[in-house]
Design a binder for these strands. Structure first.
Lengths: 223, 223
DNA sequence: AAAAACCTTACAGCAATTGTAAGTGGTGCG
DNA sequence: CGCACCACTTACAATTGCTGTAAGGTTTTT
């Protein structure tokens, strides 16, 4: 059962949306507070996010931008204002669909279903900036080029991508890869870093992995 | 540069669509005859297909259905009739977006661009029925399960998927895999068929590869 | 200049993949 | 029936690629 997360501050409309999706067999979760919407959305593990534009605090556009930078969850924007400029802006931010209220429930759920279908194909994709990686096969994609990394290097990159753009300590990476149990030579991480960088170089991403001396590693998108 | 294939019989509108896309930096190709539209569309190697519903011969809906069965090219349906039922039907067939004429050029290109962006993530996907495969990594996906095949088996499956639902002779498969140059023991194909079947069994697709005695192999979708 | 942090290269064990070989199973025709 | 033909399966060995260890080099900081 797919989970649809609804971000809408108007209580009446929120309930209506919830019912619409539940009636069609989805699990519908609404955001209750708008203080840390990003956190709440992620914790609900959405397969799809339905986003209102006018929200208290952060606007829907900002949320959309934030989500698209780090996740590969499809986003459907719903708004009362029927303005082409809003639609163009939303699509430019990476929104997957844009509908205006009032919207026929059937249209909404059909569009939602379409997005879910499409994104089934890209599930398990980790994203950071323009770079994407299939977390199953460790195929890293940038534009129209790609490399398939070996498992160890892929896992390292996955950790870095999930935390992007933060710095991740060597200790954390080591723990994520080999489990913090016993002592593991720190060198092995460095060796794999070299290998990872060499492989990323094949698609022009050599300098994407950056060292923060004394702190750890992080990713940096170069333009 | 992305290629947009336009399927529209009205000459005036066709030109307008072409110009709209060319102005935005795409390569726009129009279908000239409607006798074998499928063939013409595929030969143009589209990154996106813009499809009118009312066409001489096959309807846009039929074309959409056909395309979605065998390819993973995004399809945008454009129609003059503003009917919710048409939209629901189109989306149900697998269409990726649905717009009504007249449509603002900016809206059209923004929607098109979004589809291209989304499908960048699923490029090089081969499809046959419900089964999909990443042709780079040989990751085979069915619903929410997957297996990653070794190269040789992946190549065999790719040939079979591309020809689905036709039968492909052993000779053709062998030629595609090892090049028709020298003589290759036919046994090697059979060995890999066994291996392929065993691996497909892991996601419940054991009986998907069918033997046509004396003719070759083909795929069969079981329900 | 010395210490600390990080990078690189070489090597060997291990696992996965691939083709060869040899034999088994099943189908259809005389 | 039984033989011929086609298809399937299992076992084995060569090869390749991945992984961690070791050892030494480079850069940065104090």
């Amino acid at each position: 059962m797919a989970t649809v997360v609804i971000v809408e501050d108007d209580g009446y409309l929120r309930e209506e949306l919830e019912h619409t999706f539940i009636r069609e067999g989805y699990r519908a979760v609404s955001i209750s507070s708008f203080e840390e919407p990003e956190k709440e959305i992620l914790e609900s593990e959405p397969d799809l996010v339905v986003l209102d534009v006018n929200l208290p605090g952060k606007s829907g556009f900002e949320l959309c931008k934030w989500m698209k930078l780090r996740t590969s969850v499809p986003i459907l924007i719903l708004t009362a204002r029927d303005a082409l400029s809003d639609e163009l802006y939303a699509l430019g931010l990476g929104a997957d669909d844009f509908l205006t209220k009032p919207c026929h429930p059937k249209r909404l759920t059909a569009r939602a279903e379409r997005l879910l279908q499409t994104y089934k194909k890209v599930r398990n994709l980790v994203q950071a900036g323009d770079v994407m990686m299939d977390a199953d096969t460790y195929k890293v994609i940038l534009g129209n080029r790609y490399v398939t990394l070996p498992e160890t290097e892929g896992k390292i990159l996955k950790v870095l991508m999930e935390r992007y753009p933060s710095v991740v300590s060597k200790k954390e990476i080591t723990a994520a890869l080999w489990g913090g149990e016993e002592y593991v030579d720190e060198n092995i991480l460095q060796v794999n870093m070299t290998r990872l960088r060499k492989n990323l170089d094949h698609i022009g991403l050599k300098s994407m992995v950056k060292t923060e001396r004394g702190k750890g590693y992080c990713l940096e998108m170069i333009e």
